[in-house]
């Protein structure tokens, strides 16, 4: 069964120009104990998707349609109190900028103990748990470190602390929004390795967002490729990266000179611009930039099976079968 199963999710933002349709009919899932990566250009709706999952959306956001099923329950139908009970226990999150994710005036120990407020444990036990978690994410001398303030840690250390806090309650789903983008390459590798180990141990599902194809290739089991608010391709990392079915995925991989072996820091750029999400063009969302555009592309393509478990939203797939 899937820990997370998103079906037909649409989210819009009300803006002075009209409704900005940030997500349209997005479906994807995170199988139990698997790591699923999401890639896509800036602005394709990755953060919007996450905010809809944990229901911490911007005030001007509105869910148009869809379901976010977490272990079978539709999160969009839960009350705020039920959501709060899930956050930090069943679903946890790690953010992009480790320099901003801790309260600057509280010691790390204080913060780590505070998030255990739901547990019926003594202060000493909470402290011990915090200490154990810090050791687990690879922070040396955790006992003394608990008394330090966030500014006394480097960026990489702070991200480890954030991961320790997120995994403290052994959640079923960990969501990470570009957790390594702000770190340099060697630290990134370290954190990724540690994350993989921890995930293995806890057995949680992970939804991992990154601009970095190399990291996705290394860390993830499955990948979801998003473009301008839609999912254009999903499948196992091996299939999608070796035999991309959607022209957008192909363009991404082709622009990447050493393919995924050379670790580019940012997602390669392909010519053209993403469409205006307030005034959407009809037909295939990628048509403007697609080299293989043809007559059929005036209609929106549905997700179609392109291989074993690999799906993509492109007319070429269905045409190839029928041809």
């Amino acid at each position: 069964m899937a820990v997370l199963d998103i079906r037909g999710l649409s989210v819009g933002y009300s803006t002075p120009r009209g409704e900005l349709r940030a997500l349209r009919d997005v479906s994807m899932m995170v199988p139990e104990g698997k790591i699923v990566g999401i890639v896509g250009e800036s602005g394709c709706g990755k953060s919007t998707l996450i905010s809809a999952i944990i229901r911490l959306m911007a005030p001007n956001a509105r869910v148009g349609a869809g379901e976010v099923r977490f272990q079978g329950r539709d999160l969009l139908a839960e009350t705020e109190a039920q959501m709060r009970a899930l956050r930090g226990t069943q679903i946890s999150m790690v953010f992009q900028d480790p320099m901003q994710t801790h309260n600057p005036v509280l010691t790390v120990g204080r913060q780590m103990m505070d998030i255990q407020y739901r547990e019926r444990l003594s202060r000493a036990e909470k402290r011990q748990r915090a200490e154990r978690m810090l050791a687990l994410v690879g922070i040396p001398d955790p006992e003394a470190r608990l008394n330090q303030y966030p500014f006394e840690f480097s960026g990489g250390m702070r991200q480890r602390i954030a991961i320790a806090m997120a995994l403290m309650a052994k959640p079923a789903l960990l969501i990470a929004d570009e957790p390594t983008t702000a770190l340099d390459a060697t630290l990134e590798v370290e954190i990724i390795k540690r994350l993989r180990e921890l995930q293995d141990e806890i057995g949680c599902g992970v939804l991992f967002i990154s601009h970095h194809l190399g990291v996705i290739a290394e860390l993830c089991d499955e990948v979801v490729v998003m473009y301008a608010g839609e999912v254009v391709e999903t499948g196992s990392v091996r299939d999608v990266f070796h035999a991309p079915a959607h022209p957008y995925t192909r363009a991404l991989l082709e622009c990447d000179p050493g393919h995924i072996k050379v670790k580019t820091r940012v997602l390669p750029t392909i010519p053209g611009n993403i469409p205006d999400l307030v005034n959407l063009p009809g037909g295939c969302i990628f048509a403007d930039r697609c080299e293989r555009r043809h007559a059929a592309c005036a209609a929106r393509p549905a997700m179609a099976l392109a291989g074993d478990g690999q799906r993509a939203a492109c007319h070429l797939i269905t045409e190839r079968e029928t041809a």
């Binding site: 911490l56 956050r87 930090g88 999150m93 953010f95 309260n103 600057p104 509280l106």
Partner: peptide, 29 residues
């Protein structure tokens, strides 16, 4: 608007908790 407040919310902190544990110490100084 600070990211650490969003981070705390994502770990399950309620509004009173955010105010008492996270905003207050930042304001008290």
């Amino acid at each position: 608007e600070a990211e650490f407040i969003t981070a705390e919310k994502s770990l399950g902190a309620s509004t009173p908790r955010i105010m008492a544990v996270h905003l207050l110490p930042n304001v008290l100084g």
